[in-house]
Design a protein around this nucleic acid. Structure first.
Length: 819
RNA sequence: GCGAGGGUGGCGAAAUGGUAGACGCGGGGGACUUAAAAUCCCCUCCGGGCAACCGGGUGCGGGUUCGAUUCCCGCCCUUCGCACCA
């Protein structure tokens, strides 16, 4: 201790130059438990504020720094809201079902029912050590019967309203994980989890009709306060596309007709052939005997082909069916082909090919020698200008070779041609979406069984709500096999069950549901987690939802966030909820990287929070994570940087423990204090944590200047402002100031604008746009006085070589002289 | 290919039309110490100059403006998402 000031007496938790985080943090975590400081009065609390963060998957490796970065950011926001006088609810739980847990369990040979509780206990220990303001009385564990009972209940609600249905569908099959994957879980044709190339299989699957909600899911985006990047991702995923469905009659095949979806009805005069997806149901009927062998071979090849080959290999292949259709605009017969560049699951699974104005069709027509006709001419082109490539710039385009529509703009022709075909019964305007129905079936063990019973007499029957949960049996052979049938089917005592309708022996559905169903409604469960009789209590739900603030990773921008919105909308429509959007505000946090690279086990650059917390304390670790960079952009974690933050907390500790109540606070220090109060109070709601911390550091530098002994009034508000970041230290210092309760119930320091106001400032003076000096001036100075003062300064005046042509005076900022 | 971010000292970063580099790390120098650690103080964008100062500088090239990291146009690089979506 080299300062000339000494603490009155050594105190526990203090070290020579600061504080001992281990002692202080253990003390306060114990205190919080004893006092129930983090408990939320859900029934009676005033001004409820629900601060939600995405719940973690409790991996065996334990909490990683990315989890903690996310949770800390939410915790700071939640604690700040509490300091603003809200009753804050900050719950946390575990998303513990799913293929990830199951694969890990298989790998290490420990049953998931034994593994997951172990992981959860470890997570809980780490989360508590990090000092989160979580009310653990209201937690959820998606693998607990008391939770998944209600996940099954949610399924039944959708089933009863016709929103859950079963169909045989081509699905992505991972031969290594031996399971079906959602489209979203296939990355570049490979399994997102293990990287194995995905195959196609046809299986009976349960689906939710999310596509029925596409328009509302898109439309409502305009009403919610979400990160713009997240909303954009959802808009792209929903993929609304306005166009027309046009019908092409087939020649001589007994009334067959091919509907196509197109966004370019204006180009119909240039449709010189048609293409159906190989799987299209009309293909057998349209194939002529001469072509049948070739067509069948091509269809067989496509069916066998895995998705990666089909999607990545963009070389055009196809086979002529032997049939011709009639172009409804020209009346000309055009050949019908099949090709795998047309996808069965978009639009109608068939297209009119306009090689002159579509790059893919152009390529196909070139390969197979099909006619290419220009029907749109750009500036400087005419009807006969050769097409070397597909012409797709349609802004300035005018129609050509299109009969009475020649000369029209592309936009006009789209409308007029659709109208003309509509009049002939050959088409209509339609809106198409890229969004597909949500496949929720998983042929795996580690998930909630889908509550359906099959009866030979009565068909598929929902399990009565009174019989929920359908308990996932504790079986030893849960390993999936190649059959595509869930491991549950191998357990007769579970599999065979009485039909709920007729009582005869039936069979249980052996698929379990997707984890995104677990997480699709968990935010509804938290406030009602103590209720065994309902999924969520209506009155509590009305009080606490929708969620005021939701923070999480943008990797869930389309999956979890879209499904949650869908489930909420559906439950709203059934009358279970009064709102249809679950998250009023959503902010995506950034990613923590390490020395410029993503953290990963293979790179060996994963930061384990425990070691840092042990060495530096949770407060310093939290504050450092938030200081790394802008919260919504993430930051680069470097081991060295944390020392600066710990130094800041030590200085705060010393300033607070040395503070005096004698004399009066320094006027200029108090001015800086109130300026800091304004800055920190504005930055935290914007999640601009790094600049808020910088402002606090800057203030501490002012406070300590000259090693003066600070006045208590100069320090106490800093303890409150620092509390969201460093809650343990703040509590300890608050107590040492003699306060009885928690600092988090003390409110936010009062900001006084009069005290923050400066009476003088540095006026920058520019001559011809270059800075030539600064003047210290009073706040009220006018332009003329400022100019006179500037010209009196030799260092400035020497650049003023002629008469002043222009003067720009920005009070409080600068004076710009133009000569 | 399409969509959304991002590019600023040795490093993490600030500043969204008004003094570029706040705050922190690292580095250099000093105080204290027998010494070291810790702590405290000073310096730290680049070039020139003993200095006061001068010139240059926010990926690159243009433009608007008294003034541009910030706005506009055209490129380059990079991260993420989507991708034969008709």
């Amino acid at each position: 201790m080299t300062s000339h000031l000494d603490p009155a007496e050594p105190s526990p938790g203090a070290t020579e130059d600061g504080y001992d985080p281990t002692a202080v943090e253990a003390k306060w975590q114990e205190r919080w438990r004893e006092r129930g400081t983090n408990h939320t009065d859900l029934g009676g609390g005033e001004r409820p504020f629900y601060a939600l963060m995405m719940f973690p998957y409790p991996s065996a490796e334990g909490l990683h720094v990315g989890n903690l970065f996310a949770f800390t950011g939410n915790d700071i926001y939640a604690r700040f809201q509490r300091l603003q006088g809200h009753t804050v609810f900050e719950p946390l739980g575990y998303d513990a079902f799913g293929i990830h847990s199951e694969n890990y369990a298989l790998k290490v040979g420990v049953h998931p029912m034994r593994l997951i509780p172990r992981n959860i206990a470890n997570f809980r220990r780490q989360l508590e050590r990090a000092g989160l303001m979580v009310d653990w009385r209201y937690s959820v564990d998606t693998t607990d019967q008391s939770y998944y009972k209600w996940t099954q209940w949610v399924f039944l609600q959708l089933y009863k309203h016709g929103l859950a249905y079963k169909k045989k569908a081509a699905v992505n099959w991972c031969p290594s994980c031996k399971t079906v994957l959602a489209n979203e879980q296939v990355v570049g044709g490979a399994c997102e989890r293990c990287g194995t190339v995905v195959e196609q299989r046809f299986l009976e699957q349960w689906f939710f009709r999310i596509s029925d909600y596409a328009e509302r899911l898109l439309h409502n985006l305009a009403t919610i306060d979400w990160s713009e990047t997240t909303k954009t991702a959802q808009r792209n995923w929903i993929g609304r596309s306005e166009g027309a469905e046009l019908v092409f009659p087939v020649q001589g095949t007994g009334g067959h007709a091919i509907p196509v979806f197109t966004t370019r009805a204006d180009t119909i005069f240039g449709a010189t052939y048609m293409v159906l997806a190989p799987e299209h149901p009309l293909v057998p009927a349209l194939t002529t005997d001469v072509q049948r062998e070739a067509v069948d071979a091509y269809r067989a090849r496509s069916a066998r082909q895995d998705l990666i080959t089909r999607k990545v290999n963009k070389e055009k292949t196809g086979v002529f069916t032997g049939s011709h259709a009639v172009n409804p605009a020209t009346g000309a017969p055009i050949p019908v082909w099949i090709a795998d560049y047309v996808l069965m699951d978009y639009g109608t699974g068939a297209i009119m090919a306009v090689p002159g104005h579509d790059e893919r069709d152009f390529e196909f027509a070139t390969v197979f020698g099909l006619p290419i006709v220009r029907v749109v001419a750009g500036a400087g082109d005419d009807a006969s200008t050769e097409l070397a490539v597909a012409f797709v710039e349609n802004e300035a385009g005018r129609l050509v070779n299109s009969g009475t529509f020649d000369g029209r703009t592309v936009a006009d022709a789209k409308r007029d041609i659709t109208e003309m075909l509509h009049g002939k019964g050959a088409g209509k305007g339609v809106v198409n979406y890229r969004l597909h129905d949500w496949c929720i079936s998983r042929q795996r063990y580690w998930g909630p069984p889908i509550p359906i019973i099959y009866c030979d007499v009565c068909g598929a029957q929902p399990v009565p709500e009174a019989d929920l949960p359908v308990v996932l049996p504790d079986i030893e052979d849960y390993r999936p096999d190649d059959s595509g049938i869930s491991p549950l089917a191998r357990h007769a005592e579970w599999y065979h069950v009485a039909c709920p309708k007729c009582g005869k022996q039936g069979r249980r559905e052996t698929d379990v549901s997707d984890t995104f169903l677990d997480s699709g409604w968990y935010f509804l469960r938290y406030p009602s987690a103590d209720r065994t009789d309902v999924a969520f209590d209506p009155a509590i739900t009305r009080k606490w939802l929708p969620v005021n603030s939701y923070i999480g990773g943008n990797e869930h921008a389309v999956l979890h966030l879209l499904y949650s919105r869908f489930i909420t909308m559906v439950l709203h429509d059934m009358g279970h909820l009064t709102f249809e959007e679950p998250f009023t505000r959503f902010r995506a946090h950034g990613l923590i990287i390490k020395e410029g690279a993503k953290m990963s086990k293979t790179k060996g650059n994963v930061v384990i929070p425990d070691q840092f917390i042990e060495q530096w304390g949770a407060d310093a670790f939290r504050t450092y994570l938030m200081f790394l960079g802008p919260y919504e952009e993430g930051g680069d974690f470097r081991d060295a940087g944390i020392s600066g933050v710990k130094r800041f907390l030590d200085r705060l500790w010393l300033a607070a423990t040395l503070a005096t109540t004698e004399g009066v606070p320094d006027e200029s220090v108090m001015r800086k204090l109130h300026q800091t109060l304004a800055k920190v109070g504005a930055d935290i709601p914007k999640l601009s944590y790094n600049t808020a911390i910088a402002a606090l550091m800057e203030y501490m530098n002012v406070l300590r200047r000259g090693e003066r002994r600070p006045h208590r009034a100069e320090v106490e508000p800093v303890v409150q402002m620092a509390a969201p970041f460093a809650p343990h230290v703040a509590e300890e210092l608050w107590e040492r100031f003699g306060h009885g309760g928690s600092v988090f119930d003390a409110g936010w320091p009062r900001f006084d604008e009069a005290l923050a106001r400066e009476d003088a400032y540095q006026l920058a003076v520019q001559v011809n746009g270059k800075l030539r000096g600064t003047l210290s001036v009073g706040v009220g100075i006018g332009q003329d006085d400022a100019v006179a003062l500037a010209l009196a300064e030799p260092g400035i005046a020497k650049f003023v070589t002629g008469s002043l042509r222009k003067v720009i005076f920005v009070p409080g900022r600068l004076l710009s002289l133009v000569v």
